[in-house]
Computed example of a mutant assay.
Amino acid sequence: MEGKAPVSEHGETSKAAVPEVTSESRAASRGLSVLDLILRFVAVAATVGSAIAMGTTNQTLPFFTQFLRFKAQYNDLPALTFFVVVNSIVAAYLVLSIPLSIVHIIRSRAKYSRLVLVFFDAAMLALVTSAASAAAAIVYLAHKGNARANWFALCQQFDSFCERISGSLIGSFVAMALLILIILLSAAALARR
């Protein structure tokens, strides 16, 4: 009977057979949870910044007279509208996930709530990736144009508009990288169990 845990007369294993969580392991899990919380705050800032930068982007150019003008707005292009909506949704989700992330700092052994967060984090990563990719394609066309499709580069005239929409993409790509890190941290915390 070597290698087996001691069994009581009722058929239960004794507590000596269950490995105890060391304070070092608990501290490492708490450290991962603190880093997760910090990354969530930074990702909120990145997505909110992207949504605001894109949502407030417009530029008006005069055309011969002051009564006839050309105007470029983000909502003229559905991909950019999708970008603003998705970044707003992801920012709202991240704000709502912060209390659960705080719970993980306090109770580092929580497993099921961490699994739920991993699932929703992955869904938000997919959303922000699709929105940023669609917006990046539009930004590329705005900068370079497409001669075969008779799309002219808008950025030659609407330079301020193009600078802002290009800048808003940076925050979204940063949020993508942060969500990947958050998912990896959660996976590492789950693997420590």
Rank of each mutant, 00 (worst) to 15 (best):
L184Q: 09
R109C: 08
L125K: 04
A136C: 03
A45Y: 04
A126W: 01
I102C: 13
A175D: 02
I98C: 12
A17F: 03
T56S: 07
L115F: 13
Y74S: 09
D159G: 02
Y140I: 01
A149S: 07
I182E: 13
C155V: 05
V128S: 05
D159A: 04
A187Q: 11
K4F: 10
S108G: 07
A53S: 12
I102N: 10
A134C: 02
D76I: 11
A28V: 01
L190A: 13
E12G: 02
F158E: 00
V118P: 06
A16M: 06
I98H: 11
F82Q: 15
A189L: 12
N58F: 04
F64G: 11
K4Y: 10
H10K: 05
S113L: 11
D159K: 00
T129D: 06
I98W: 15
Y112H: 12
S14M: 02
G171A: 09
L61V: 13
G3I: 04
S166G: 14
M124K: 12
H104E: 13
V48T: 14
L184P: 08
A91R: 10
L184T: 14
S14C: 01
F120T: 08
V7C: 07
S101T: 14
P19D: 07
A149M: 06
A123R: 12
E12S: 03
I98R: 09
T65H: 05
K15N: 06
I170E: 02
L169D: 01
A187H: 09
L68S: 06
S8Q: 13
F63C: 07
L94R: 08
L184V: 15
A43F: 10
I180F: 13
S133V: 09
S166W: 00
I170D: 00
G167P: 09
G145H: 02
G167L: 01
F70R: 04
A123W: 07
A5I: 12
L100I: 14
D36E: 13
K15H: 09
F41A: 11
L77R: 13
P6L: 03
P19G: 03
